[in-house]
Design a protein around this nucleic acid. Sequence first.
DNA 1: GATGAATGAGCTTTCATTCAT
DNA 2: GATGAATGAAAGCTCATTCAT
Lengths: 202, 202, 202, 202
Amino acid sequence: MRQGEREDREQALIEAAVSVFRTQGYAGTSVRAITELAGCGTGTFYLYFPSKDDCFMAIIDRLYQRVVAQVATRRATAGTTPAKLWASIGAVLEVFSAEHALAHVVLVQGPGIGPSFRERLDRIRQTFSELIAEDLVESGLDPWVAACGARALLGALGEVLVWQVDADAPGGRLTRAGEEVRRRFFMGYGLPPVDDGREMMT
Amino acid sequence: MRQGEREDREQALIEAAVSVFRTQGYAGTSVRAITELAGCGTGTFYLYFPSKDDCFMAIIDRLYQRVVAQVATRRATAGTTPAKLWASIGAVLEVFSAEHALAHVVLVQGPGIGPSFRERLDRIRQTFSELIAEDLVESGLDPWVAACGARALLGALGEVLVWQVDADAPGGRLTRAGEEVRRRFFMGYGLPPVDDGREMMT
Amino acid sequence: MRQGEREDREQALIEAAVSVFRTQGYAGTSVRAITELAGCGTGTFYLYFPSKDDCFMAIIDRLYQRVVAQVATRRATAGTTPAKLWASIGAVLEVFSAEHALAHVVLVQGPGIGPSFRERLDRIRQTFSELIAEDLVESGLDPWVAACGARALLGALGEVLVWQVDADAPGGRLTRAGEEVRRRFFMGYGLPPVDDGREMMT
Amino acid sequence: MRQGEREDREQALIEAAVSVFRTQGYAGTSVRAITELAGCGTGTFYLYFPSKDDCFMAIIDRLYQRVVAQVATRRATAGTTPAKLWASIGAVLEVFSAEHALAHVVLVQGPGIGPSFRERLDRIRQTFSELIAEDLVESGLDPWVAACGARALLGALGEVLVWQVDADAPGGRLTRAGEEVRRRFFMGYGLPPVDDGREMMT
DNA sequence: GATGAATGAGCTTTCATTCAT
DNA sequence: GATGAATGAAAGCTCATTCAT
């Protein structure tokens, strides 16, 4: 089997998994339901993931990797600290918008599954919120206030994403809502708004 | 059996349930684990809740009722619209702080369990976010911006609560973090800060 | 408590038990369902019967005792052997007709519950079928043919009773059907019909 | 998996089920007990039957289908109405004799399990008793007498079968007892005996 | 590599029975 | 005597995972 075939099937399985997880919840999703939707046998699932848990972990990681990559890309071309912060949030919005099904499942189901998932997600959240917090501290905020703000921002962005996805809003609407949150966040912390010429919708 | 005895045991079961749900997740929690922690037989559980699902629903409802009651109380003594908004958020903080274990479980596990729970939680979130949004609209904001802000606020408050509870922060710290979010929220939306003389920690 | 009160309540419990057993089956009947119908607490049930099994046994025994008593009464006034046989069957019909609910439950549910019930019922059936068989032998039939006939008669009477009760037939119809079976039975075995002046319906 | 393998295992499960049902009763039989006797895991049971109830229903249906088929076969070669009646009863005897374990369980346990089983069995009984009754009416009997006789015959045959099976009588003895019932039935209703040259035992 | 039949641990739930009131 | 809350054994059933084909 070509490498590509393997990736295609893994992709199909992940998409099927995301689809079922989203409507049925993690516990309500059986491996059989995933494989049936993906159009393969149950045993095949285990050629791609060591367990159901690992499949969900792979979903989390996939989203995380994309966010990390996009954030790095966007920050590289930003000059000032506020611009970096602005760009980081924008990067998250871009990925969440492009992978909204993935993001929805990770944000909604992830935290509730169990301790190991909580831990993995917390590590990710921690990574990102520390990045934000550092930018805020560099912008002159008290460290505790910064940490608090970073967390609040994460929560706000996640909630707004889920809200829009649940409402079946088109990608543009989703992004615009995220951008609105970013703008208010900057205002709330007295930071200068940034014009990066990227706003997709006006 | 005295009325009080029944309530005591129901309370013990809910507390045990919250404790196990929080560490093991909803699906990872067996009824037996709850009753063992509560110190009664498995069958006893079913004298108080028709099913495991209903037990979780009872947890959700209990939190919701307290929030609704507290919000009503605090709004009653507030004058201007911004003061009502300020008071509403404060009411949520008070309840979440007092019932942080309950709130943590509802916020973290609730959304992921399954469609029926999502629905119930969404109804509650909808109720509260509409209240906030109305205050924002009355304060002169565009309806869509207001709706967006209300959702963002819910997400931010929830995330900050969970963050603090996970960090085993004392109740005072938790409240202070929430108040910080409220303050930044007001600034973000250009609303005048309110001094209600209620800040518990300084 | 007067003796009569105790018997009244036992009667009420048995009637309730028969009613629920009949519609729900033995296993489908909970003690609580019986006591609710009888209008007393669950614990009270155990003041009258040592167990659910024993309650059913009591129902069986009650029917059996009435049949035995009635058969003895009717046989006492019969002269010839065929007349005794005729009278015995008539006695059964009288009791089954008067206690059709009891009989229905015993005949339909009894055999399927479990080994101990089967055994008890078999003993009863054995008792009665031997009586019939002896009459047949005395009337000149081969013992094996007689045994066979006695069993067949029991089955035929039971089936006809259940059929009529299920059809909600009035008691008279039920008796007439039984008498028809008795008449054909006598013809089948070449016995002279008996006129005991007892046919209730014509 | 070959088609034959699947049928073999289903057959093994049905045989195990019949064996346990017969000794323990329906409610007293656990699925685990069946699978242990059949030599497979508990989950395997549910690959063959959707539920314990459906397994019993399958047993009922299997017996019913065989009776229907055999009756049709035997009636096809019978000339006169009495001969058809004679042949129908003979067909039932043949099947009950060949499948006496199945028949025993259906006759003894079936009626007591619950309303849905009663209903299914009644439909079957109704089917067969109407067939018999029609033959009797064609032979000149009053419809009500015929219906009564058909029911009585069913009861008599069932009782005699169960009696012989409980006594561990060999198949030949069982058949002979049934034939004796048939002969007496014909005499009881004044029908001419039929010699179909099929009597297996003399 | 792909399959799906087989497995059995473990779940939620019921209910006969007990016993403190 | 009467009650019904409490109990826990045991049931039916599901599903992640394995492995022979």
